[in-house]
């Protein structure tokens, strides 16, 4: 039960109920990636715009469980303003954290740290990862 309470941290619930950067926009220079998990119904699209090596905008659209939606929202806030290399390193580190693999402690995950509780729920790793994986696709060269 303590683990469950730790999974649904206040920050996560706050992002779930008031998602940031939600809704896709029309515009030049956006890269877009849509990922679906057909077994559970998670369905996320990430849209990213880079300018001179910096993430200028990052948005999402989608539906799914609270962990899926909140992690997409946190992703967008974390990434906007980051250098592309930095963003990539953060995303990889985040994906390791939720999968319970060893992480690089020198990389600051900022607010995304709240998803650490996911590692105790292997069935939910996918929910927490889907939008971050989609994001990595949008910044692939």
């Amino acid at each position: 039960m303590a683990n469950l309470e730790n999974l649904y941290r206040e920050v996560i619930m706050e992002h779930y109920k008031n998602p940031r950067n939600k809704g896709l926009v029309e515009g030049l220079g956006y890269h877009i990636k849509h990922i679906k998990n057909p077994s559970c119904g998670d369905d996320v699209t990430i849209q990213t715009k880079c300018n001179e090596g910096v993430i200028e905008d990052c948005r999402f659209e989608g539906s799914g469980c609270s962990i899926c939606c909140a992690s997409a929202s946190v992703l967008t806030e974390t990434m906007i303003g980051k250098k592309v290399e930095e963003a990539e390193a953060i995303a990889h580190n985040y994906l390791k954290m939720v999968s319970n693999e060893s992480i690089d402690p020198s990389i600051d995950l900022e607010e995304a740290e709240v998803f650490a509780g996911v590692r105790l729920f292997p069935a939910r790793i996918k929910c927490a990862s889907i939008s971050w994986k989609a994001f990595l696709e949008t910044i692939k060269k």
Partner: peptide
């Protein structure tokens, strides 16, 4: 969302399905 709910049941060792 059902995937949130099923985690609660699973935590109590109750096995069921969530999804499509």
């Amino acid at each position: 969302p059902p995937h949130d709910a099923v985690t609660y049941y699973a935590d109590q060792n109750i096995c069921m399905r969530a999804g499509q």
